[in-house]
């Protein structure tokens, strides 16, 4: 039986659901956040190392491309949601300058602490704020940010549509959302190699480097359960975003979605 076949296909209709996916498992919605928190508590210390090992450094290019597409200008206010260890926030901090601001938000305190320490060690302090926040209920006023980015975070959110609605609320008119997330490979051979790598190599790497194979098994499963490119674009539009588009990176292993609030 393939890994995909283990997914529970007998879900109740939308609106009656009390469960959600946690990798391939179905869990109670109220418990997903704490289970995801457990995963990231476990990997926080080795998160950056594992990202480099797993992606062979390519994640840095995906993130750089995202920052370039953001086209952030001096004095703008940026929210880096699920900002983890602050890779995007560091770049935004230098680009918006002292008249702008960057808010690094993450639901997970361990990740936030690692990110804060890393950025402070780089001497980045003057325009950075750190907020422990749930993407589904952002603790910011309406129309606050010029740009919201979320890199490799949306798939871990329990109710993704709620998160997109919440982001739409805090964006200023004219502001934009960029979501960088694993997606569905567009080429069949790439897809097969990627599946084999995800389910056979990735957990072993997790075991070897971070002494935690389960978290990386969850990572592989959560990627497969994440909406594909077109579905996520529709979710953007449902939240109210306009001029939505996406770009596949590395044959669709990762996609960068972009939407504007007008």
């Amino acid at each position: 039986m393939s890994d995909h076949q283990s997914v529970d296909k007998t879900l109740p209709a939308q609106g009656q659901q009390t469960t959600t996916d946690f990798g391939y498992k179905q869990v109670d919605k109220s418990s997903k956040a704490s289970m995801v928190a457990g995963v990231f508590d476990s990997v926080a210390a080795k998160y950056d190392v594992m990202n480099d090992v797993m992606s062979m450094g390519v994640h840095r290019l995906w993130k750089r491309y995202t920052v370039d597409c953001a086209a952030v200008r001096k004095g703008q206010h940026v929210l880096d949601l699920a900002g983890g260890t602050g890779d995007l926030a560091a770049k935004f901090s230098r680009r918006v300058g002292p008249t702008g601001s960057v808010t690094l938000a993450d639901i997970n305190l361990s990740m936030l602490k690692v990110g804060r320490d890393k950025l402070r060690d780089q001497g980045l302090i003057q325009n950075l704020e750190y907020v422990q926040a749930d993407a589904e209920a952002l603790p910011f006023a309406d129309n606050t940010f010029d740009l919201v980015t979320m890199a490799f975070g949306l798939r871990n959110v329990t109710e993704k549509q709620n998160a997109l609605n919440s982001i739409f609320r805090v964006l200023k008119p004219g502001g934009r959302l960029l979501v960088l997330e694993f997606s569905k490979p567009t080429l069949e051979p790439v897809s097969k190699i990627y599946d084999w790598y995800s389910f056979h190599v990735l957990p072993k790497m997790g075991e070897l480097v971070a002494n935690d194979s389960e978290s990386y098994q969850y990572l592989a499963e959560s990627i497969r359960m994440h909406p594909d490119q077109e579905t996520l674009k529709e979710m953007f539009e449902k939240a109210g975003f306009e001029n939505c588009d996406y770009q596949n990176l590395t044959s669709g292993i990762v996609a960068l979605h972009r939407g504007y609030k007008f």
């Binding site: 200008r73 901090s93 680009r95």
Partner: peptide, 26 residues
Amino acid sequence: HFADKVEVSIENDAFEALEQNLAAQH
């Protein structure tokens, strides 16, 4: 972008579009 170190970004806008919206110190 000159800060504590130099950040390099690719400009998606053309020269003509960028020169219309230049901020101070740009």
